Simulated assay, not measured.
Amino acid sequence: MLRRKLERSKASEKQVVFFDELPWIASRKSGFLPAFEHFWNSWGSRRGNLLIIVCGSAAAWMIKRVIHNKGGLHGRVTRTMQLSPFNLCEAHEYLRSRKFSHNWFQTLELYMALGGVPFYLHQAQPNLSAAQNIDKLCFEPGAPLRNEFNEVYASLFENHERHLQIIKALAKTQQGLTRAELQQKAKLESGGTLSQTLEELNRSGFIGITIPFGRTKRDSLFRLTDEFSLFHQRWIEGKRLSEEAGAHWIKLRATPRWNAWSGFAFENICLKHIRQIKTSLGIAALQTESSAWRSRPKPGEKGAQIDLLVDRADNVVSLCEMKYSAAPFTITKKYAEELRNKMQVFQTATKTRKALLLAMVTANGLADNAYSQELINNRIEIAALFEP
């Protein structure tokens, strides 16, 4: 049918055929993919005026079945384009285009819960605050995103239960897990199936994988990076939600649990905006390598973890601390000691001869006191994260 339709047009006319959500069209029993392979190889590939565009939100499926296809579509892809969620700047501009009068802090709170997925942001209402929108989208009876978490994973992955076990294990830790730790906590067997599941989650943008400073790929840390998955696991999964409309989220914002979640969520957002952080540090044009690091203390020794460090070509390592708070963040005597310990343990364990500079990334600025003046070399505030 498609071939007959295209043959009716002049050969000199440009023809563009767009298949949206190919994974849905080419379901297991549909027979679509073999038919499409035959169509392209026997006829379409010889049409100089024909352009076929295929897309799908199931990134792992698209990579396996199209980009890395081992059958009739092998080597047929001309160009690939990965559409990532909006970053903070893009999300803010999008909301502004829809008549939102939100400032950066309102956009940040919405982003911490929903991430940069346009479909989620599109459902927010400009006449409501970020907290009111989160209530309406996630907590009220019949909220459109209340059951979104399970539906997303079921639609994107075959045997999605394995993927959910990994996500749930990672949601419980802010520091990330090694493969061995993740295997144990998610109660999964090691092997090719685990590797494939981790790759699918990584390629689909749900988890991030980093190689710690001075370590090898075997020591990689896996971390949950999808904002909505973290939000769902912390606030909706297994929780008894009210069946009455009300300021549910606004009430939760006053709890210690909210402080723990917001710190994790803000840190994740910072790790997605390393380019903006580098620009703020004045090293955008400098060759760098970003990673995380944690020590392996012996019994009786103090450990340390650094969630973002930037190894620079100018013989400097920037150690970045990321803190979310409703007011300017204050470095206390206790926290100052933690920072000194981090720097000392890192220098001793890695034996680096590079200079160490401490940078503080904050949502609401850094309170000026003796500790901040002594320890902090660079201060990065929310405006930097909203740069393009």
Rank of each mutant, 00 (worst) to 15 (best):
L2P: 13
G142N: 04
K10M: 12
K10S: 15
I211T: 13
K168C: 10
K185Y: 14
Y94W: 01
S45F: 09
G300Q: 05
V310I: 14
H38Y: 14
L230T: 04
I207D: 02
N202S: 13
A313G: 10
R46I: 12
R379D: 04
H160F: 12
S155M: 07
L110I: 08
E13L: 10
F228T: 05
R294Q: 11
T197W: 03
L164W: 10
R379E: 07
A143G: 00
E151A: 11
G116D: 01
I306D: 02
T197Q: 06
F346P: 04
G214R: 04
N369M: 00
H92Q: 08
F213N: 02
G205A: 05
F228N: 04
G44Q: 06
A124G: 09
E37S: 05
Q305A: 09
T255W: 04
E387H: 01
F346Q: 02
G282M: 03
K168F: 11
F19D: 11
S84H: 12
A11W: 13
F149G: 02
D314Y: 08
L221H: 11
A130D: 09
H102G: 06
H163C: 08
C320P: 09
L194T: 09
E237K: 13
L137T: 03
S229L: 03
G300I: 07
N259Q: 15
Q15A: 13
S57H: 07
A58L: 00
R96I: 06
G31F: 01
R3E: 15
K302N: 13
K14V: 13
I274N: 03
L110N: 06
S291H: 02
L51A: 12
H74Y: 14
D135G: 04
